[in-house]
């Protein structure tokens, strides 16, 4: 079993790993970035993903995976600093700007991303997407939320029930 090369303290090229999406696209990425995923971290620490092997990710398609890796590459340096206690305000502001732009995307991509973040256990990404969707929800009425998030039209019974509730909770609609 190969001892993991940590990348730190190694002046040579950073260790790379290969990830394989559900549609068989291969992504070569620094181990430090891929290790933002708790699930991948274990495999990588065991020496997996190097050479010609690659780690198959049958639940993540290539479009989603490239997006996930974009996030991981950007966040890897801060994560390597253990939550970035040394990060400057500028670094933090830059990450925040990146995050805000990163989730400014189509809803279906957001859902694929949060699923992938959940499967791969990338806490920061899952939290970022969840916050984005929560922001899309707040300030809207129940019907607006249903429409925005792609719920099917309510059945007449559901509609009647919502109307009754809106009467009962009128204060929440002022």
């Amino acid at each position: 079993m190969a001892a993991p090369e940590s990348g730190d303290g190694n002046n040579g090229a950073a260790r790379m790993v290969t990830l394989i999406s559900s549609d068989n696209t291969r992504f070569e990425v620094e181990a430090a970035a891929a290790s933002l995923s708790q699930t991948l971290q274990l495999t990588i620490l065991d020496g997996g993903g190097g050479g010609g092997d690659g780690i198959p990710l049958p639940n993540v398609d290539s479009a989603t995976l490239s997006k996930v890796l974009e996030y991981c590459i950007k966040h890897a340096p801060a994560a390597a600093n253990g939550g970035a206690p040394n990060a400057t305000a500028v670094d933090r502001a830059e990450l925040e700007r990146f995050d805000n732009e990163f989730v400014n995307i189509d809803q279906s991509v957001l859902y694929s991303l949060i699923m992938a973040a959940h499967n791969l256990e990338i806490e920061g990404l899952q939290s970022l997407v969840a916050k984005k969707v929560a922001d899309m929800i707040k300030g809207k009425s129940p019907m607006e939320i249903r429409r925005t998030l792609g719920f099917p039209d309510p059945t007449p019974e559901e509609q009647a029930e919502m109307n009754a509730h809106m009467l009962e909770y009128g204060w929440a609609y002022e």
Binding site: N59, D61, T64, Q107, S108, Y111, S112, I114, M115, H118, Q126, S127, A130, K131, V133, A134, I137, K138, L149, G150, F151, P152
Partner: peptide, 23 residues
């Protein structure tokens, strides 16, 4: 597994993560 196209297709665990972040 087909990717979810809308929020209702998400599993409850993730819906909870989202609703947890309401102000």
């Amino acid at each position: 597994m087909a990717p979810p196209r809308s929020l209702p297709e998400l599993m409850e665990e993730l819906v909870e993560e989202i609703l947890l972040r309401l102000p």
